[in-house]
């Protein structure tokens, strides 16, 4: 058996529906159509009355989910694209994120955001907006980079009593495969060392983990050993694992597919300079998408986002500094 990242997400949802009668799925075309990316394929048939089509209103979708959560349910909301979740922003950040603080009633909703760029998708179907949600206290923001994590972390997201923004990368949907689903995983909030190294730490998450791994392979042939930290969860952020890695290497490069301004990479650098200044043997660097809307044209898109090539180039500069 071989499973893709997308199939793992479908399997996790089936698992959650099977295990917990409080779980239901709500979103545009998630029912008989099986979702825009087929992440809920056949689930409506398998779990009648629990995989429900919503109107085309992200606002209403999240609002309904918050209400259902108050009544004791555990809804999974599917956004067709992360980009559209901002239409439901008010419900997510003002209602869901603050509910427990205001009322002591937990808000166990999971909002699935298919996010990140794919070739030719343009400005409205490519955005990485994890940092915006991470900004708000009360939200958990997860960014799995592997098939195994996609499965295990989605299950854990549903089980958590806090509202979870589950960022699943569209570029990884079909490209990533695993032999089997995991039976255990690291706890939420714990980063993973995706590759061990001694010369430089790359901290990244989601699809960029794979660009970084590719870059590390290239740099390894030049004699550099790159350590890669896969954050898994951008909020909470595992500062300890990051600082421990910088303690081993002395050099930090943060890579994110999101825009640079006030983002996750900026937060990591801020933490490392505050808590581990004396560990740095070079100014910490970061590599992000260009600070422009995401272009349609495949060539422009390829130049807009960090790639293995640009990660390797940035790493080389830092290694030689």
């Amino acid at each position: 058996m071989s499973l893709t990242y997308l199939e793992a997400i479908r399997e996790a949802q089936a698992h959650a529906l099977r295990d917990d009668p409080r779980v239901f799925i709500y979103g545009q075309d998630v029912g008989n159509f099986g979702g825009a990316f087929k992440a809920t394929k056949n689930l409506a048939k398998e779990f009648p009355g629990r995989v429900l089509d919503s109107p085309i209103s992200e606002d209403a979708m999240v609002g309904l989910a918050v209400g259902a959560a108050i009544e004791g349910m555990r809804p999974i909301i599917e956004m067709q694209f992360a980009d559209f979740s901002v239409v439901g922003f008010n419900q997510i950040v003002n209602q869901a994120a603050t509910l427990f603080w205001r009322t002591q009633i937990p808000c166990p909703i999971t909002v699935r955001l298919p996010f990140g760029g794919t070739s030719g998708s343009g400005p409205f179907h490519s955005q990485c907006i994890e940092a915006i949600y991470a900004h708000y206290p009360g939200l958990i923001v997860l960014t799995p980079a592997t098939v195994e994590d996609a499965y295990a972390m989605l299950l854990e997201a549903v089980a958590l009593d806090d509202p979870v923004i589950f960022c699943e990368h569209k570029f990884l949907y079909y490209h990533l495969k695993a032999e089997k689903l995991p039976s255990e995983a690291l706890p939420i909030g714990k980063a993973r060392i995706a590759r061990e190294g001694r010369d430089l730490t790359v901290v990244t998450y989601s699809a960029m983990v794979h660009e970084a791994l590719e870059a590390a392979k290239e740099l390894s042939s030049e004699g550099w050993e790159i350590e890669i930290v896969d954050l898994r969860s951008v909020k909470p952020l595992d500062t300890d694992t990051i600082v421990a890695s910088v303690a081993r290497t002395g050099k930090l490069l943060c890579v994110g597919e999101a825009w640079p301004w006030g983002g996750v990479t900026a937060e990591i650098i801020s933490r490392v300079t505050s808590e581990g200044f004396g560990l740095l043997d070079a100014p910490p660097q970061r590599l992000n998408a260009k600070d422009t809307p995401v272009p349609y044209h495949p060539n422009l898109w390829a130049a807009h986002r960090p790639t293995a090539r640009s990660v390797a180039a940035a790493a080389r500069n830092l290694l030689r500094s």
Binding site: G250, F277, G278, L279, L280, D281, A282, P283, S321
Partner: peptide, 16 residues
Amino acid sequence: PANAAGASYLSPRLKA
């Protein structure tokens, strides 16, 4: 230059 590097530059780690 914000990243003034050079023979006399001591990184925070080296100083520590």
